[in-house]
């Protein structure tokens, strides 16, 4: 067990070191911006993965929590001139309240029904962002969101913001790794594998599902606040149904029930649209294709799928080699 702990800390440490070194090498603002988006998406996907990958509860409305974080931070700072950090905390509190309100009835549902309920929730929140013009600025968006600052230092450079986003995201990764490897994490996986057996083992599955829903909503809310203060302008289209689907794709591509897979999934699907920019509006088609291909050929996700393929290849090579030397 202690060896395993050290192993985890080694992973986190080397990943953190790598992240810390990136801005020293990469000075191009565009690349740094992409890296910041990867960080924000990773935060979202790590949270969603706790809900989907571990507890096995699907959410097709996660963009709504991302949007709640972004809009609460945006409105409180741009319109009401509150300073960003308290606004971020208020955003989290509000998101928790909404998650409880939605989660308590919705998580009584399973499978397709839960998917439909969260889908509906996502659409309702999106419409609110669009129609509450007096509050959110409506479809034309909300402008004038200030940059974040720590003390008197304003984080208006991509490099400084990069460090902030990744520090928070790395912290969230550590917390998630700890949760997953604990009594609570086992209980979450138990719900996924057999809910009756989980209940018979004394797990209050209904309450645990609500808690993991709330935790993943908190991750999304913080990601939303970071997003709002980064681009300083938000509009409803960033929080629509398509973004929820994109998040689910990131979880699936990275691999269900894998924290590092979530990082990989977020990175791949954040970089991909930039690379696929030549396809314009067809990038969503490509997303759909990737999702289909991964689900059919690598239902464990790309990371695990690639490992399995490698194992298979090695096994075949060994078998082939063995038969050669034997024959």
């Amino acid at each position: 067990m202690i060896r395993f702990l050290k192993y985890t800390w080694f992973q986190v440490g080397s990943f953190g070191l790598l992240l810390a070194l990136v801005p020293l090498v990469v000075t191009n603002r565009y690349y740094l911006n992409v890296m910041i988006f990867i960080g924000i998406h990773t935060l979202l996907v790590v949270g969603l993965n706790l809900l989907m990958g571990y507890a096995g509860q699907i959410s097709l409305g996660h963009a709504a929590f991302f949007g709640l974080g972004a809009y609460t931070s945006g409105v409180l700072t741009a319109t009401y001139k509150l300073s960003p950090w308290p606004a971020m905390v208020i955003a989290v509190v509000l998101t928790v309240a909404v998650a409880l309100l939605v989660g308590v009835p919705a998580l009584k549902l399973t499978g397709y029904y839960l998917a439909m309920a969260t889908l509906g929730f996502g659409i309702i929140v999106y419409i609110c962002f669009k129609e509450l013009v007096w509050l959110t600025g409506g479809p034309s968006g909300l402008v004038g969101i200030p940059k974040l600052s720590i003390g008197t230092v304003v984080l208006d450079e991509p490099r400084t913001y990069y460090y902030l986003v990744w520090a928070i995201t790395l912290g969230a990764i550590v917390l998630s790794l700890n949760i997953v490897d604990s009594r609570v994490g086992r209980a979450l996986r138990a719900i996924h594998d057999s809910e009756p057996a989980a209940r018979a083992s004394g797990i209050y599955t209904a309450r645990l599902k609500i808690w993991v829903f709330v935790v993943s909503a908190i991750y999304a809310s913080v990601a939303g606040s970071l997003y709002a203060h980064f681009i300083t302008f938000i509009s409803p289209s960033s929080f629509d149904f398509m973004f929820s689907i994109k998040l689910v794709t990131m979880v699936v591509v990275g691999g269900m029930a894998s924290i590092w897979g979530a990082v990989f999934g977020a990175a791949t699907l954040t970089v991909l649209p930039e690379v696929l920019a030549v396809f314009h509006d067809f990038d969503i088609v490509i997303f759909g294709l990737i999702l289909m291909v991964v689900m059919i050929f690598m239902p464990q996700g790309l990371t695990r799928g690639a490992l399995d393929l490698w194992e298979k290849y090695r096994l075949q090579r060994d078998v082939a080699g063995g038969s050669l030397s034997g024959g």
């Binding site: 009594r183 086992r186 209980a187 996986r189 138990a190 996924h192 594998d193 057999s194 009756p196 057996a197 989980a198 018979a200 083992s201 004394g202 797990i203 029930a257």
Partner: peptide
Amino acid sequence: FQNVELFDRMTVLENVMVGRH
């Protein structure tokens, strides 16, 4: 359970550990 309801994605030890919940 009649149809053996184990936690398939866990190890033998982890299955028993869940029982300590």
